[in-house]
């Protein structure tokens, strides 16, 4: 598959640390993600993967180090978070749709309220985003009327409708029944092909192999290994990575 050529750094972690009380969850993270790069992050549960990507839009503030996203300093308390968050779509494991709103209302709320786009134009954008994830016929359905895979696609459309520069995914298929995983991955594959900058926390190694530019392994709050997928899967450097891969690849 053709991959976008990698350009300037869109996300840059420099010696980033984060604690929850006494618990040191991010330990000296150094990472650059280029524009149009697709990076997959994997690792054992509790290793800090969610915290890592949640720090990018300051859902979790960091305590030490520098974190620059789209030339905005996330570590600086003075940075305008609204502006930054408008540029970052975030997809959660549990979808987190607004249950009292239709699919179209879910995706157009932030464009209207944050980007201040008029309803008519926002509706057009919303329709376009939902068509893009294959839900052009579900505009007026409520989340409770949709399957898990459809809900997650609405969540992706909600991110896309803001025309973001970056999309972050925190285990987007972990809460789905197996038969629905592929419809969500397919949408993500298309996004990658179009050159979206993406960080995807996932254990879908097929997706990593096929779509990502690099795969990172996270262990006890550290990024212990980062390599292109070919190398990552055929020659994992550390024993911990090997062990982890043997566990998730066998089932």
């Amino acid at each position: 598959m053709e991959r976008y050529s990698v350009q300037r750094a869109m996300i840059e972690f420099k010696n980033v640390h984060k604690w929850f009380g006494d618990l040191h969850v991010l330990k000296d993270i150094n990472l650059e993600v280029a524009q149009a790069e697709v990076m997959v992050v994997c690792g054992p549960s509790g290793s800090g993967k969610s915290t890592l990507i949640r720090s990018i839009n300051r859902l979790e503030p960091i305590q030490k180090g520098e974190l620059v996203v789209d030339a905005m300093k996330v570590h600086d308390p003075k940075t305008n978070m609204t502006k930054l968050r408008a540029e970052i779509g975030f997809v959660f494991q549990q979808f987190n749709l607004y249950p009292h709103m239709t699919a179209l209302q879910n995706v157009t709320l932030a464009p209207m309220k944050v980007r201040k786009i008029a309803r008519k134009e926002a509706d057009d954008m919303g329709r376009y985003s939902l068509e893009k994830v294959g839900l052009g016929d579900k505009l007026h359905q409520y989340p409770a009327q949709l399957s898990g895979g459809q809900q997650q696609r609405v969540a992706i459309a909600r991110g896309l409708c803001m025309r973001p520069k970056i999309m972050l995914f925190d285990e987007p298929t972990s809460a789905l029944d197996p038969e629905m995983i592929n419809e969500v991955l397919e949408v993500m594959r298309n996004l990658a092909r179009e050159g979206m900058t993406m960080i995807v926390v996932t254990h879908e190694m097929g997706f990593a192999r096929e779509v990502s530019h690099r795969v990172a392994f996270m262990d006890f709050g550290e990024l212990t290994e980062i390599a292109p997928p070919g190398e990552f899967f055929s020659h994992p450097k550390s024993e911990r990575t090997k062990l982890f891969l043997s566990k998730i690849l066998t089932h």
């Binding site: 839009n57 859902l59 978070m81 609204t82 502006k83 968050r85 408008a86 970052i88 779509g89 975030f90 959660f92 549990q94 987190n96 749709l97 607004y98 249950p99 709320l109 932030a110 309220k113 944050v114 969540a155 909600r158 991110g159 803001m162």
Partner: peptide
């Protein structure tokens, strides 16, 4: 659910907007 509120935070909605719409 806290998740919805988090989704609203992540998309840039302010405290007042989250209260009002979510």
């Amino acid at each position: 659910s806290h998740g919805q509120v988090e989704a609203a935070v992540a998309s840039g909605l302010s405290y007042i907007q989250r209260m009002r719409h979510i």
